[in-house]
Computed example of a mutant assay.
Amino acid sequence: MRADSDEIAISNSATARSVVASPTSCAAIAGESEACTGKIVVIGAGTSGAVARRLAHLLSVCGTAAFYLNPSDGLHGSLGAVGTGDVVIAISKGGESTEINEFIRRATTRGASTVALTAVLDSELAECVNIAVRIDSASADPGNVIAMGSTLATSAWGDALAVALMRHRQYAWADVLYSHPGGAFGRHSEELLAGVGDPHREG
Rank of each mutant, 00 (worst) to 15 (best):
S5G: 12
I10P: 01
N12S: 07
S13I: 14
S13L: 14
T15Q: 10
S18I: 02
S18E: 05
V19S: 12
V19E: 08
S25P: 04
A27I: 05
A28T: 11
S33Y: 03
C36F: 09
K39G: 00
I40M: 08
I40F: 08
V42H: 01
V42P: 02
A45E: 10
S48N: 13
S48F: 04
V51D: 11
L58M: 07
L58P: 02
L59K: 01
S60Q: 10
V61D: 01
G63E: 03
G63D: 00
A65I: 07
P71V: 02
G74C: 11
G77F: 01
L79Q: 03
G80T: 00
G80Q: 08
V82L: 04
A90R: 00
I91F: 12
S92P: 10
E96I: 00
S97T: 15
T98F: 05
F103L: 06
F103V: 05
A107M: 06
T109R: 14
T109C: 09
R110P: 05
R110H: 06
R110M: 10
R110K: 14
A112Y: 04
A112L: 05
A112W: 01
T114G: 01
A116V: 00
V120E: 15
E124H: 12
V129L: 06
I131H: 09
A132Y: 00
V133P: 00
R134C: 12
A138D: 12
V145K: 14
G149M: 06
G149Y: 11
S150I: 05
L152I: 12
L152N: 02
T154E: 05
W157N: 10
A160S: 10
A162K: 11
V163R: 08
A164G: 10
M166S: 11
R167L: 07
R167F: 07
R167K: 15
R169K: 15
Y171L: 01
Y171H: 14
W173P: 09
A174M: 06
D175T: 02
V176W: 08
L177T: 13
H180D: 08
H188E: 12
L192Y: 13
A194C: 13
E202Q: 15
